[in-house]
């Protein structure tokens, strides 16, 4: 069953930041890939703290691969990933797990656990890693679901919701522990323009409220224009452009121009 989408409560979120800025992330001479396949040859980039950084690029350019490596789901072939100044590639497994607990992740389709309700999904990281009493966890879950406009759907299972609602629930789960870094993988993919715009607005409002470092992987230009403080454009295994959105639009590189104009490349 797919349910009717409730309106997003954007306005209550547009207040001042409640916590200090999130982490910065530095990528130094990164070589990434799987097995013998190299996806990113040499990437050096900086993701500033407390800003929204969009990682942009064509399909297959390594955006999601980069995200997986930042999350420690895969090991880089070479290079360093500095999370809040600490080299994640040199950390012990235990140290990295401690660090990763403080990262919120929104996967492409939400990646909510199908056997749990929305409330249980959002509560999961708190139940597993905090010693908060049940009542306090329930309060936090209610608060986060209210933020994304899904408080009336807390007892629904992910399969009963639309794609947009699953993404919003995924965002609520990502924010459950008030992480200093939120990473989003294609947060507007598969959504209609209205839902995609709502998702952007929600992410922006969340950022204003929590002041976390947001890293959003996307190939949705409209979304990038709306959201990004900082852009990294990946092409052929390297960062072709790094900077703000006006700079991207003024960039004279032929590929950047082709990408922004949505022109086909001569095959």
């Amino acid at each position: 069953m797919t349910t009717h989408e409730p309106a997003l409560p954007i306005s209550p979120l547009s207040d001042s930041p409640e916590q200090p800025a999130g982490w910065s992330i530095a990528l130094e001479s990164l070589r990434l890939g799987y097995g013998s396949t190299v996806v990113i040859e040499s990437l050096t980039a900086h993701i500033p703290a407390g800003r929204i950084t969009c990682i942009l690029g064509g399909s297959g350019c390594g955006k999601s691969t980069l995200l997986k490596h930042i999350l420690g789901l895969a090991r880089p072939m070479a290079g360093r990933i500095l999370l809040d100044g600490k080299d994640a590639t040199q950390m012990s497994r235990r140290e990295f797990r401690q660090l990763r607990r403080r990262m919120g992740v929104l996967f492409q389709d939400g990646a909510l656990l199908g056997s749990l309700t929305l409330a249980q999904n959002v509560a999961l990281p708190l139940v597993e890693h905090s010693r908060l009493p049940k009542a306090r966890i329930a309060e936090i879950v209610h608060e986060k679901l209210t933020l994304v406009g899904l408080e009336d759907f807390k007892d629904y299972h992910p399969g009963q919701l639309s794609g947009g609602m699953r993404k919003r629930a995924g965002l609520a789960r990502a924010l459950a522990t008030d992480p200093p870094v939120v990473l989003c993988d294609e947060h507007t993919s598969g959504l209609d323009p209205i839902n995609a715009a709502s998702m952007d607005a929600l992410l922006k409002a969340m950022h204003r409220r929590f002041n976390a470092t947001v890293v959003a992987v996307s190939h949705d230009l409209e979304s990038v224009r709306t959201l990004a403080d900082h852009v990294i454009l990946l092409h052929e295994g390297r960062a072709l452009y790094q900077g703000d959105v006006p700079g991207l639009q003024a960039c004279e590189d032929p590929y950047v121009q082709t990408f922004l104009a949505r022109r086909p490349i001569n095959l």
């Binding site: 997986k68 999350l71 789901l73 797990r97 401690q98 990763r100 607990r101 990262m103 992740v105 996967f107 492409q108 389709d109 990646a111 909510l112 656990l113 199908g114 999961l124 990281p125 597993e128 890693h129």
Partner: peptide, 16 residues
């Protein structure tokens, strides 16, 4: 299904 829909990655990222 959990594997192909990133749910297992999500568990890992939540340190579960």
């Amino acid at each position: 299904v959990m594997r192909i829909s990133d749910q297992i990655d999500a568990l890992e990222v939540m340190d579960i």
